[in-house]
Amino acid sequence: MNAASQKLEIPGTRVFDGELAQKGYALNKMCFSFNSAENREAFRQDEAGYCRQFGLNAEQYEAIRTRNVLGLLAAGGNVYYLAKFAGILGLDVQDLGAAQTGMSKDEFKAMLLAAGKGI
């Protein structure tokens, strides 16, 4: 018996396990650095150089460059660290939700309000 092998497939959902943690280390380390306002500013000044400094691979850099949230997740990004990148872009979690689900932000918000009806 092997605890690690009990993987559950959940549609549209990933758990951030060792495999993703390895893959995304550089990307997440960069996003962790965005806790500091100074680092956020350094990123803004020179995105490509900042990404290089943290050793992002091509997939990760491309996802950063194109603000592709699902691409960032696929490249090993962890949502708790990616949220700090979203902060730089001035996006809140509902913007991110809309971007990932293909809805408009208003549609996404309406979906959540609907879920709260009649509980």
Partner: peptide, 13 residues
């Protein structure tokens, strides 16, 4: 709540 992935916005009252 779910912030990330295609299922973002999922809740389960």
């Amino acid at each position: 709540h779910q912030l990330d992935g295609e299922r973002a916005g999922f809740v389960n009252p």
